[in-house]
Design a protein around this nucleic acid. Structure first.
Lengths: 213, 213
DNA sequence: AATGCGGGTGATATTTTAATCATCCTTTTC
DNA sequence: GAAAAGGATGATTAAAATATCACCCGCATT
């Protein structure tokens, strides 16, 4: 295989930044900046489709930001690796970029060698994130999981599960919640069905794991 | 502040691995392995609670794995940083660890210097992931977002939105779907409400962003 | 002026979900 | 044998969600 340079396209609204970045990337000898644009619309109008290997895309741009542009860029070139290059550590920007197909999200304060590695990673089909945003990523995963699991059980079912977790029996739960034992048993049945477990002990363990307790 | 060593506790079922790891960490001069266990239950029984700064926890262990043990460990010591140290790149292990409070997830094939950095990161309250699992992380985020957004609109509403996206009018959509124009308009109204947009063009843009189109 | 289109407001019927309770069976304990 | 507890199966009612349709208004086009 030849050592042809990886062809990059830059989209960033600051021309000085693009110029500096272009110089830096050219110096690296592995990359060739084949085009650049001030905003996504300009890029979409002029894009040299078959001549780009990796797109470097800013997030914060006037009118149409990088995240908002992703669906249109992806529609035009579904398999082009896109590396977000931004100062934004905003969770919504990050998750929006990920959900709309970005292969990487790197902060502008990254070292040149790390930028080089990031470009290579996405070029080779891998994903890459700046280490600084790992906390945001984990927080996002935890939140989405919480949102998801929260809806598995109804409020009443959670009430019953919490009572079970405290060691209460059907009888005492019915007294505490002012409902009949039969109602408690029905709730427990539904809890076991939803959590896909076989008995109430397992339900409590699974409930703890899912964050209900 | 003194340069006291960071106190580590190791939980891994392979004694040879623990021995090798202990030697490596001791050589680094920044860490002190103050305890170790073959499995989480043994660890929970003997844990020197106030004398540990970071817990290194394997995932794959007989009977009770590291992920399953996390809730109990967290209950005992809610603020202790936990770094998973594992060969598992399994998505469920990764997400399970994250959701149950691990601060970091590092693969056993990592270089010693990177392990050192990872321990320091979680010790200082940051999060850390091995670069190799970034793709799994992004995939998990995308999947959970998809699961979440999928339920925003009913099947019929998605049908209507897709017709709108193709440029169809209320009249043509009613013909295509064999329902009245008034029904189409009601679906559009509900779509706009759910997506929190003001008109059908915005609904289509938002729908594209959320993955319905 | 008529028509087509988008948007706003309201209504009805059906289906699904949530909450409630009853009956019966098995196992364990006393 | 009786009582307590857990689990299985079934039922009813109310609330929420889904799918349907009607009518009215404003604007643009013909």
């Amino acid at each position: 295989m030849t050592s042809a340079k990886i062809r990059l396209f830059l989209i960033d609204d600051h021309s000085l930044f693009r110029r500096g970045l272009k110089n830096l990337l050219d110096e690296m000898n592995e990359f060739s900046v084949v085009g650049e644009a001030t905003n996504p619309m300009e890029a979409l109008a002029t894009f040299p489709r078959s001549d780009v290997d990796v797109l470097l895309l800013d997030v914060n741009m006037p009118e149409i930001g990088g995240v908002m542009a992703l669906p249109q860029i992806k529609k035009l070139m579904p398999s082009l690796p896109i590396l977000m290059l931004t100062i934004s550590q905003d969770s919504q920007d990050l998750i929006g970029a990920i959900n709309n197909g970005a292969s990487g999200y790197v902060l502008k304060n990254t070292e040149p060698d790390q930028l080089r590695n990031a470009i290579l990673q996405v070029y080779y089909g891998n994903s890459i994130l700046s280490p600084e945003i790992t906390s945001e990523v984990l927080t996002a995963i935890r939140k989405s999981q919480h949102d998801k699991t929260r809806n598995i059980l109804s409020e009443r079912e959670v009430d019953v599960l919490r009572c079970l977790a405290r060691g209460n029996t059907t009888t005492s739960i019915s007294t505490m919640l002012f409902i009949s034992e039969n109602t408690v048993k029905t709730h427990i049945r539904h809890i076991m069905e939803k959590l896909e477990v076989k008995n109430r002990a397992e339900a409590v363990a699974k409930g703890a794991q899912l964050g209900f307790l």
